[in-house]
Design a protein around this nucleic acid. Sequence first.
DNA 1: TTGTATGCGTTATCAT
DNA 2: ATGATAACGCATACAA
Lengths: 343, 343
Amino acid sequence: MAASEGSAPTLRDVGALAKVSTMTASRALRGDPKVSAQTTARVRAAAAELNYRRNELARGLRLGRTSGMVGLVVTNLANPFYSQLALGVEAVAASRGMKVVVSNTADRVERECEVVDDLAARRVDGIIVVPAGLEQGHLDPSYLKDIPVVLAARPPVGITADCALLDDFGGARQATAQLVADGHNRIGFLGPPAAWTSAERLRGFRTVLEGAGIALEDALVSCEQRDIATAERVAGNMLDQPDPPTAFFCANSRNTMGVCRAVKRRGLRTAVFGFDDFEMADMLDMSLRIVTYDPEALGRQAAEQLFQRLDEKRAVPGKAAAIARVILPTSIVDYTPAVPTAD
Amino acid sequence: MAASEGSAPTLRDVGALAKVSTMTASRALRGDPKVSAQTTARVRAAAAELNYRRNELARGLRLGRTSGMVGLVVTNLANPFYSQLALGVEAVAASRGMKVVVSNTADRVERECEVVDDLAARRVDGIIVVPAGLEQGHLDPSYLKDIPVVLAARPPVGITADCALLDDFGGARQATAQLVADGHNRIGFLGPPAAWTSAERLRGFRTVLEGAGIALEDALVSCEQRDIATAERVAGNMLDQPDPPTAFFCANSRNTMGVCRAVKRRGLRTAVFGFDDFEMADMLDMSLRIVTYDPEALGRQAAEQLFQRLDEKRAVPGKAAAIARVILPTSIVDYTPAVPTAD
DNA sequence: TTGTATGCGTTATCAT
DNA sequence: ATGATAACGCATACAA
């Protein structure tokens, strides 16, 4: 049999081999009870012999417009935060027999536009996106018509859409409050530029300081650096000033790591409070606390919200329920060694 | 205009609004020069007004069988290794206008089977997979017919397929050779169970020891642990023996971190050599070297191999070129602080 | 129980 | 330059 050539077999091929019509083959493979057991068996055998696999694309086309895929648009897959988020999305999608199409935007809004358009053209059932910027028109329901969108990690700006967020503000507030309670009144702040997340964390920081009547010095706030090396340099500059900070609050893990380096290399005991947990943080032997959370849970949450929309759309094709904005809590973990802190 | 309801607009809708046939609308939107400029403009305007987006699924169906997507099947997306690999695949795919469908198998072969079947049913153009086990029949070309498969990080077993691998053996050999050259002859080995990768690294380790005439003690080899805490305990047991190892070689990052913990907590200066770089490794203040590599490059490599197959298939639908097995090099980075090592 | 016609949205082919 | 027809692979509706 030289039948193993060329393109994939179709229902017609299966039908021909089983000596039934295309339609009967279709029904038999779906387990339609109206097909006789004998015929079903014969068709199944033919399908197996041909290694037939149903074309889900054609099936979807016939059945209505649903590809059984959800789009996931993230800014940087190499960042563990987003890859764990992706894992959460994938898990929920898989549990509903759906596939996830992942795209990386490298934080470029134009790329995000292209990607979202492409996903829409591929008729994904819905899209989960970590928006790269503040221009989000291409994510608006009026633009994407009936493709539901859920934003993750960053909120909608100028559009209406469901979203799943972390409690960036609350986490920062708690952290800063602890530092203030510990008696610190000169606290340095380091964070990455531009991200909404970072701005919220700075807002939480500011709020607590203002509430405590502590003036915010410009020289102790820096939101320009996104890599470890630069963060280390910036923190070093602050520490080498005549009146250095006695503590730091860092808005993301890269900045935290840079600050840890600067503090440790100077043999100081400056207290560090970071946002975003990282491996081996407990091995650093310094005063280090971290605001942490579960990125995978964030992904699961966003996916659940998306699927709720999809179910809702299926049930009541009319107008939809109110926009949901879910905020996931953060927690605090203390990596400061117990012993050496004894004064 | 109440035209914003229900399902997405089709070419017919666009044609109707522009008062041309479906066919002309199709041609106009593709920029066919045989359509007059006026008509093209009118069609474009209509499409814009309706927010029309071509249905790529239907298009693919008509044009032949290609979804413009590649499947990526990994064992654990939360592991930075695989998420960076995914980033590499995504980058190459994006540069060719393709999408990546990511699936997680959690190292379960049965899940891998389902996932691969599903991807095939969705008519992905090709699949890149990090195989979970040694049963790989479901990845064989005879089973998947004309969907090319490239294996990443782990080699084909019992099947013929292209693959992109790391030089696990060579990296381990180099590392072990350095330890031996440093005078170590009692070296502990810790690695995760079951993975091919880990076995190769153990083989490299063994090869060097045998070459150096150093006996391999069973008590100094443990391949049972995959998490940091267990690795720490296992390493601790070895260190607490009467005749503890003077060095460790670890086959993955979790084991390396666990060993670092055990060594550091005991205030020892045992040399540690790991496989897989990790953040803040340079902050640990201990004798630590690591065999490192570029997971993203591995993803890019696998994707390139896949696309080469696709191009080849397009050009010569007949038989294909020989199987390719590409091995990417590793390198060594030394995190040992310069100062305190002065004897 | 099985088969025929029809259409999903798109495009190739052949008219006009 | 534009339109009509058919077909990609599958499944609903109806007929036999």
